[in-house]
Amino acid sequence: MRTLPIRLHPSDDLREALAAVLKEHGVEAAFVLSGIGSLSEARIRYAGVNEATLLCGDLEILTLSGSIAPDGLHLHMTVSDARGAVIGGHVAPGCTIRTTAEILVALLPDVRFSREPDPQSGWDELVVRGLTPP
Rank of each mutant, 00 (worst) to 15 (best):
residue 1 M to Y: 11
residue 2 R to C: 06
residue 3 T to R: 11
residue 5 P to W: 04
residue 6 I to L: 15
residue 6 I to D: 05
residue 6 I to M: 07
residue 7 R to W: 14
residue 7 R to S: 14
residue 7 R to V: 12
residue 8 L to M: 15
residue 8 L to T: 10
residue 8 L to D: 01
residue 9 H to V: 15
residue 9 H to K: 13
residue 14 L to N: 07
residue 17 A to G: 00
residue 19 A to M: 11
residue 20 A to N: 06
residue 21 V to P: 01
residue 21 V to S: 00
residue 21 V to I: 15
residue 23 K to E: 14
residue 23 K to V: 14
residue 23 K to H: 15
residue 25 H to G: 03
residue 26 G to N: 15
residue 27 V to T: 08
residue 28 E to T: 11
residue 30 A to P: 03
residue 31 F to K: 08
residue 31 F to Y: 10
residue 32 V to D: 02
residue 32 V to L: 08
residue 33 L to P: 04
residue 34 S to P: 07
residue 34 S to T: 09
residue 35 G to K: 01
residue 36 I to R: 12
residue 36 I to Y: 06
residue 36 I to G: 04
residue 38 S to T: 15
residue 39 L to F: 04
residue 40 S to C: 13
residue 42 A to R: 01
residue 42 A to Q: 02
residue 43 R to P: 08
residue 44 I to Q: 02
residue 45 R to T: 15
residue 49 V to K: 11
residue 51 E to W: 15
residue 51 E to Y: 15
residue 53 T to N: 03
residue 54 L to K: 12
residue 54 L to D: 00
residue 56 C to S: 14
residue 56 C to L: 12
residue 56 C to G: 12
residue 57 G to F: 07
residue 59 L to T: 01
residue 59 L to N: 01
residue 61 I to C: 09
residue 62 L to V: 04
residue 64 L to I: 05
residue 64 L to S: 05
residue 65 S to Q: 13
residue 66 G to N: 06
residue 67 S to F: 14
residue 68 I to P: 07
residue 68 I to F: 01
residue 69 A to N: 08
residue 72 G to M: 06
residue 75 L to S: 03
residue 77 M to Y: 05
residue 77 M to I: 01
residue 78 T to M: 12
residue 78 T to S: 03
residue 79 V to P: 08
residue 80 S to P: 03
residue 81 D to P: 00
residue 81 D to Y: 01
residue 81 D to V: 04
residue 81 D to H: 02
residue 82 A to P: 02
residue 82 A to N: 06
residue 83 R to V: 09
residue 84 G to N: 07
residue 86 V to C: 09
residue 88 G to A: 07
residue 89 G to M: 02
residue 90 H to T: 02
residue 95 C to L: 05
residue 99 T to C: 07
residue 104 L to Q: 00
residue 104 L to F: 02
residue 104 L to D: 01
residue 106 A to D: 04
residue 106 A to G: 06
residue 107 L to Y: 05
residue 107 L to F: 06
residue 109 P to D: 07
residue 109 P to Q: 04
residue 110 D to H: 15
residue 112 R to H: 13
residue 114 S to R: 14
residue 114 S to H: 09
residue 114 S to I: 03
residue 115 R to C: 11
residue 116 E to Y: 07
residue 116 E to H: 12
residue 116 E to L: 13
residue 117 P to T: 02
residue 120 Q to E: 15
residue 123 W to I: 06
residue 126 L to V: 05
residue 127 V to L: 13
residue 128 V to A: 11
residue 129 R to G: 10
residue 130 G to V: 04
residue 131 L to S: 01
residue 131 L to I: 12
residue 131 L to K: 14
residue 132 T to K: 12
residue 134 P to C: 12
